[in-house]
């Protein structure tokens, strides 16, 4: 059944997207986008990475055609990862105002 969703050409297509993404990331590292706003390079790299990850999950891992329970698990794990980032960043963004720094 699952084989119906993805054919070899489709797999290769997704793979091509991943390769292009990698090349773009590399290119992004060689140019300076700070003129747009500081840290723009990082943002672009992260966006590319996110797209690649979404492709892998949706197509390689067949999440796109999966039942709701799988979707729930996927969304929950993103929520959970957001917790990790949010709380870590809560530290970094408020560091300067703390009592341990002057």
């Amino acid at each position: 059944m699952e084989h119906d969703h993805m054919t070899i050409p489709k797999y290769l297509g997704v793979f091509a997207v991943l390769v292009v993404g990698t090349i773009l990331t590399d290119y992004d590292a060689t140019i300076d986008l700070d003129s747009i706003f500081p840290g723009a390079n990082t943002l672009v790299a992260l966006l590319i990475a996110f797209t690649k990850m979404a492709c892998v999950m949706l197509f390689f891992m067949h999440v796109y055609w999966s039942p709701k329970l799988i979707w729930l698990a996927v969304i929950a794990s993103f929520f959970w990862m957001a917790i990790m980032f949010a709380f870590t960043m809560a530290d970094y963004f408020t560091r300067a105002a703390g009592v341990f720094t002057t």
């Binding site: 917790i83 709380f87 560091r95 105002a97 341990f100």
Partner: peptide
Amino acid sequence: GFLVWGHHMFVSGQSIYASMVF
């Protein structure tokens, strides 16, 4: 259990606000 890890880092240089939340 996933929301409290910063209590191991109170004196590590972690921001005081993060420490309060944790």
